[in-house]
């Protein structure tokens, strides 16, 4: 199936269960939103899928167009087509954005094939212009000394350059000012289409005004407890999470 298909995923951190039989399917071509209180395991999901070694997958599957990602190295997962925009992007001193993205693209080319520098720079500048990132940033070290919003924009720039089949955006909207939020949303919308599936992790329904999701999921204590359309986000915004909690308590009682 052409989807990011997560089945009964269990993930421990330092022996403690964080994801508990987590299941979710994001078909290619759709945009889903994942919401949920702090500490419920949203970032854990993203990092576990991306192959972070501290996140121990004790059970379940994560299929990317049918191929299981569990057990692969992070770079293999990335090259298989999964991109993650980090909630807290790392700084890489001394490595310019231009060189970093270039190395990432080069890593996807077949052995012996070289990236065309002029075409690369043209595309890079186009995408930077689209995201209103000053061209001076090409020579700045990745995320070093960037403001919170600049880091997030840089994540989206990388996504646009790498053109993944699936992307998980972990709170890309937090730290963005109103204008930046619009610009970044335009970037994500521009990539929307039949060839890409996107999972957006967010706390704010505001983002979903700009990026209309096909589905919204609510996460609680390591799994999805409710799924619905865009209106679910509005409901959450209005009522808060206590409402979900109460419903859940009633259901399990």
């Amino acid at each position: 199936m052409n989807a990011l298909n997560i089945q009964d995923l269990n993930v421990n951190i330092e022996g403690k269960p964080i994801l508990k039989n987590f299941s979710l399917t994001v078909p290619k071509g759709e945009v889903h939103a994942l919401m949920g209180p702090n500490g419920t395991g949203k970032s854990t999901l993203a990092k576990a899928l991306a192959g972070h070694e501290a996140y121990e997958i004790t059970g379940g599957k994560a299929l990317l167009d049918g191929a299981d990602l569990v057990g692969l190295e992070p770079d293999e997962i990335a090259r298989a087509g999964l991109f993650m925009a980090f909630q807290y992007p790392s700084e890489i001193p001394g490595v310019s954005i231009a060189n970093f993205i270039r190395a990432a693209i080069q890593a996807r080319l077949p052995e012996g094939e070289n990236l065309q520098a002029t075409a690369y720079y043209k595309e890079l500048y186009d995408k930077m212009d689209a995201l209103a990132i000053d061209r001076k940033f090409t020579s700045r070290a990745v995320n070093e000394g960037f403001s919170g919003g600049e880091k997030k924009r840089c994540e989206i720039l990388q996504m646009m350059m790498l053109k993944p089949a699936y992307a998980i955006l972990d709170e890309t909207d937090s730290g963005l000012d109103i204008d930046a939020l619009k610009i970044v949303s335009q970037g994500v919308n521009a990539m929307r289409g039949p060839d890409m599936g996107t999972l957006i992790i967010t706390h704010y329904q505001r983002l979903l005004n700009y990026i209309q999701p096909d589905k919204v999921h609510v996460m609680w204590d390591g799994r999805i407890v409710r799924s619905g359309g865009k209106e679910l986000a509005l409901e959450l915004e209005e009522k808060g999470y206590d409402w979900v909690k109460e419903e859940l308590a009633a259901a399990t009682a």
Binding site: D75, F83, Q158
Partner: peptide, 13 residues
């Protein structure tokens, strides 16, 4: 390790 993970997430070994 986070830095290496970040770079690997972009496809670098």
């Amino acid at each position: 390790a986070e830095q290496i993970f970040y770079m690997q997430q972009r496809g670098l070994s």
